[in-house]
Design a protein around this nucleic acid. Structure first.
Length: 993
RNA sequence: GGGCCCAUAGCUUAGUUUGGCUGGAGCACCCGGCUGAUAACCGGGAGGUCGUCGGUUCAAAUCCGACUGGGCCCA
């Protein structure tokens, strides 16, 4: 890696590191090497959940990718063969079609067909591949390593052929069937939607709430009407029945104009009829069979129509307890209508507009018919009450059009026949967080309806089903079979989309008659559910996909509970009779900094690339792991700064210290495990081992969260205690065992951290590993990401860790005491005296305990077992514990120590002057000093030290005031009267570096 | 309307499984210190009705219930 040749000692920035590392990876082709297959190695099964290839990636994609990458890097470091590392994209379906419709400016299926399905499909293909490019760029910036050169696309012929194979398998198992059922239907997209698509589009809206008179047919007496409530007046022309509940109490009350009204007893209050005169009381069952005149007569007569029927689904908690039933427009209605054998009446065209079968609203969009029909009812005296109601209603998740429920032909995967196995296999899955298994996901499995698979659209996997005039269905499960059925080889450039498939003349497999393809495409969620095997073109190419093995790990957002998690699980159960995955890590949604959901329309969405440009990939990675990603999480530049950037900066500061001293003549680390004798070194190595084990445990478990606290704890200890107390050891000019131990210990831990944190921080750790290796260890791996997971290099000692913790607590107490003494920390004091003996649990620290304490507090000695009686308040500051004196510090330094303090004061100021003059820490200077007598004595006594510390060539003293001039500095505050002139001189040959 | 999950200082969080010492950190803030890591380091301070209300208990951030707010899912 290029040396970070900073000018002077300017520290390298995170941005520079990431740029350098990216280049380095390119140059050394690390990514393909890391992802290279490892035949024979233990297998870790994974599949990338394919994002929909339309539009730009958002923060949700970023979190998942970070979490996936973390686990995959960990497994690679442990020698696993990842099956598969392929990136993947979900290229089909409404999301892509809608994007293309916008681009082309077309608005309906008719316009698409005028434009040409072939050209439209081509545009969809282009859109899918373009969008994939945006994901690749984002992934590169966060260091998400997948095989982008061999990605799977659900539009690939091989992929589609695998999907066909699966459909044929299900067809043969009689799990794939056609039905005419009421489904949610988008009139703009002109297609039914699956329940998981509908689920994404519920929102609060206002609808009419009308109560209508349905006059009963009876020979005599006053007019008597059923009161019927609905929020969809547009369905009234399709009314064929009214449903009641047999065991519910109904009453007939007298209305204002002598008319009589029938409704459930429970509903009287709702209609303000509590005090109305009751004409008759009965049960629902008594009403069954009564005929009424429908509000509109467009449906015409038919057997059994316009009667009261009984159904258990009826309640009186809303409305009147008499339920308007239009078999074409509601799931319950359809069932009730079928039971009564009344047929159906659907006066809407495929775009949700009324046909000429309902002249008053002909050509009107179904919603637009509501007010017109309501007025019509009013004019005929049939409207009893009207208002509006706020409730949640489904809208199309892609185009925001209100959906309607209507009976349509559709192909279903009969998932309800699999419910027991779906539930049983889910019990084998390890969900993170665990509550999802029996909570949300488990609940859904028990309730799940059959899966409506077919879409009346263009861009998707064509349903490989052909029907002949005799009604035989032929399901084709491979291209070879297709060729056989058309009686000739497929064209060389065969594209298994509608354009390529619809023109083929397929012969019926049963009777050889000419067939017609079922004109549907497949729900794109089915495509992505096939990813584990279809990406490998199973079963046409064998080897890497094992039908008996679930995936070891997948990771997606919580929104996939009903999406990919579900479709994977259903298909694995139906096709392979096993769970789809062993472990699934689920992340929460990403919110903005105020905790609000990010959305494009609200304008509060954080653009991933923008944020990455600001804070960098590693800082974002660290932040996403450090916050609780299983819950909704707030993300903003400020949060990344204080979490991710902050942590990285501490780590880099430690590294910078080590690297700088290594280059300045320190020995660096030779790459061997350290065997230090000192307690401080052994302590930090023990801390390292504790951390290494904790991180390994966490990543092994699939949940990285427990790794965070140990890591930040270690880095903090390293920075604020180990390094703080070890600094002079790194400055030693002469080789010594102690200096070697210091470099070896810190070097080993920094390189160890590079390996340990590589899955978390791929950029920074690569830089760190390469840089540490450069300081003297020549056999660095090409990349830390090609290296093995770190093994133990030292012994753990919990006793030593505890002892150090106690010592540090004592140090803190000592610091407080020193502040109370009001003697500057740089002025040494003679001793720190304790009334007690040295604590027994400090034993693992040995003699170093006193030394660490003394150095940190700048006292010359620690005296144990001192007599508190000697601690006069005028001479000592005393720490007391419940009035008992426990420790004491002298209030003043001895004269010698005071002089030494003076020297340190001067040295410090001269160092500052060096820096202020822009001198590098290797520059030599000539120094002229004009100082008072006491200071001069102190300097002369420590002349060698001053010359060495300040890299002084010639040292002179100036009597009297030093005249102003270049390089002259003066200090007159705090009672000092000092001046100095610093002049840079050329470095002497052979001098320290 | 139903289900699951979450709520600790301005921010990120530990502690909640198994109730028990004055609820810990870090960042930011204020005061002071240090100065061969310097957008670093050290000391002190301020900042918490542990979302709200109620219950169980000698004792509740922790267990139970209701509510509020947020998220996801279902209808």
């Amino acid at each position: 890696m290029a040396a970070p040749e900073g000018s002077g000692s300017r520290p390298i920035t995170l941005r520079e590191i990431e740029a350098q590392v990216s280049q380095y990876w390119e140059a050394t082709r690390v990514l393909p090497r890391a992802l290279a297959d490892r035949p024979g190695a233990p297998i870790f099964r994974f599949t990338e959940g394919p994002p929909t290839a339309n539009g730009a990636p958002h923060m949700g994609h970023v979190v998942q990718r970070i979490l996936k990458d973390l686990q995959l890097r960990y497994r690679r470091a442990n020698g696993y063969r990842i099956l598969s590392s392929m990136a993947g994209w979900d290229c089909h379906g409404l999301p892509v079609e809608l994007q293309v419709e916008k681009q082309l400016g077309v608005k309906s299926k008719l316009e698409i067909e005028r434009y040409g399905i072939d050209r439209f499909s081509e545009a969809c293909r282009t859109e899918a591949t373009t969008a994939a490019g945006l994901f690749v760029e984002m992934s590169r910036r966060i260091g998400f390593w997948l095989d982008y050169d061999h990605a799977y696309f659900t539009l690939q012929p091989t992929y589609i052929e695998s999907v066909w194979w699966s459909l044929k398998t299900l067809f043969d198992r009689q799990l794939l069937e056609k039905g005419h059922y009421v489904l949610p239907y988008c009139p703009r997209c002109e297609t039914p939607l699956s329940s998981h698509e509908v689920a994404q589009g519920y929102r609060e809206t206002s609808d009419p709430s009308v109560t209508v008179r349905f006059p009963l047919v009876r020979p005599d007496g006053p007019r008597r009407s059923l009161l019927v409530w609905t929020t969809t007046p547009w369905t009234l022309p399709a009314n064929l029945l009214v449903a009641v509940r047999s065991d519910l109490a109904y009453v007939t009350v007298a209305g204002p104009d002598g008319e009589e009204l029938v409704l459930a007893g429970e509903a009287l209050e709702r209609y303000g009829l509590t005090h109305a005169r009751v004409v008759e009381r009965c049960r629902g069952s008594d009403l069954v069979g009564r005929e009424y005149r429908p509000p509109f007569d467009f449906a015409g007569p038919g057997p059994g129509r316009y009667r009261v029927v009984a159904d258990d689904s009826v309640t009186a908690t809303d409305g009147t307890g008499l339920v308007h039933t239009s078999p074409s427009f509601g799931p319950e209605d359809q069932r009730i209508g079928a039971a009564a054998g009344v047929g159906s009446f659907d006066p809407l065209d495929s775009r949700g507009r009324f046909t000429d079968r309902v002249p008053p609203v002909q050509g009107k969009f179904f919603k637009a018919a509501d007010p017109i029909l309501t007025r019509d009812l009013e004019s005929r005296g049939l409207l009893y009450a009207s208002g509006t109601i706020r409730h949640t209603y489904p809208f199309c998740w892609r185009c925001d059009t209100p959906l309607l429920y209507r009976a349509v032909d559709s192909w279903f995967l009969r998932t309800r026949r699999l419910t027991d196995r779906l539930v049983a296999y889910n019990r084998r899955v390890e969900w993170i967080p665990a509550h999802l298994r029996d909570g949300r996901f488990g609940n859904f499995l028990t309730e799940a309806k059959d899966w409506a698979l077919s879409r009346n659209r263009y861009w998707g996997t064509p349903l490989p089903l052909w029907v002949c005039p005799q009604g035989h269905t032929t399901c084709i499960g491979s291209f070879a079979e297709l060729a056989e059925r058309i009686g000739e080889p497929l064209p060389a450039d065969f594209d298994p989309h509608r354009v390529g498939v619809d023109r083929l003349r397929v012969r019926c497999a049963t009777c050889q008659d000419v067939t017609r393809r079922e004109p549907y495409t497949l729900d794109t969620w089915y495509d992505s559910g096939c990813a584990p095997f279809a990406q490998y073109h199973y079963p046409f190419e064998s080897g890497r996909f094992d039908p008996n093995e679930p995936l070891d790990f997948i990771c997606e957002g919580l929104d996939q509970t009903r999406g990919w998690f579900y479709t994977l699980h259903v298909l694995a159960t139906a096709l392979f009779d096993r769970p789809a995955y062993r472990r699934v890590l689920v992340n929460g949604m990403v919110l903005d900094e105020n905790g609000r959901k990010m959305s494009k329309s609200k304008g509060n969405a954080v653009d991933p690339l923008e944020l990455l440009g600001e804070v960098g990939g590693d800082a974002l990675r660290w932040t996403f792991v450090a916050v609780d990603f299983t819950e909704p999480m707030r993300i903003s530049p400020a949060i990344v700064q204080s979490t991710g950037v902050r942590f990285l900066r501490t780590l880099l500061n430690v590294a910078a210290f080590y690297l700088q001293n290594s280059r300045a003549g320190g020995p660096g680390w030779d790459g061997r495990p350290p065997h230090p004798t000192g307690a401080l070194d052994r302590w930090i190595l023990s801390r390292w081992e504790t951390t290494r084990e904790a991180v390994g445990r966490a990543l092994e478990s699939g949940d990285p969260r427990p790794a965070i606290a140990p890591i930040t704890g270690l880095v903090d200890d390293l920075s604020t205690w180990y390094l703080r107390r070890s600094r002079p050891r790194f400055w030693a000019e002469e080789a010594s065992a102690d200096r070697t131990d210091a470099f070896a210990t810190l070097g080993a831990i920094l390189d160890g951290l590079a390996h340990l944190l590589a899955p978390f921080l791929p950029f920074t750790t690569e830089w760190l590993h390469q840089e540490v290796a450069r300081t003297g260890w020549k056999s660095a791996e090409t990349s830390v990401h090609l290296a093995a997971w770190p093994v133990a290099v030292a012994a753990r000692s919990p006793e030593l860790e505890t002892a150090m913790e106690r010592l540090r607590a004592e140090v803190e107490q000592g610091r407080v005491l020193r502040q109370r003494a009001e003697v500057k920390a740089r002025i040494p004091l003679a001793e720190l005296a304790y009334a007690s003996e040295r604590p027994a649990d400090w034993a693992p620290l040995g003699a170093e305990a006193d030394r660490l304490l003394a150095e940190e507090l700048n006292v010359r000695a620690i005296r144990w077992g001192a007599a508190p009686a000697d601690w006069s308040e005028s001479e000592w500051v005393v720490r007391r514990d419940r009035d008992r004196p426990v420790a004491a510090l002298p209030r003043r330094p001895t004269p010698e120590l005071a002089q030494e303090g003076l020297l340190r004061e001067l040295l410090r100021r001269l160092q500052q002057a060096r820096k202020a003059a822009g001198l590098d820490y290797t520059d030599r200077i000539d120094l002229t000093l004009a100082v008072d007598r006491a200071t001069r004595e102190a300097v002369e006594r420590a002349r060698d030290r001053l010359i060495a510390d300040l890299l002084v060539g010639r040292l002179e003293f100036h009597d009297g005031p030093l005249p102003d001039g270049p390089g002259v500095q003066r200090w007159t505050e705090e009672g000092f009267d000092w001046a100095a002139r610093l002049v840079r001189v050329a470095p002497a040959p052979g001098s320290r570096p």
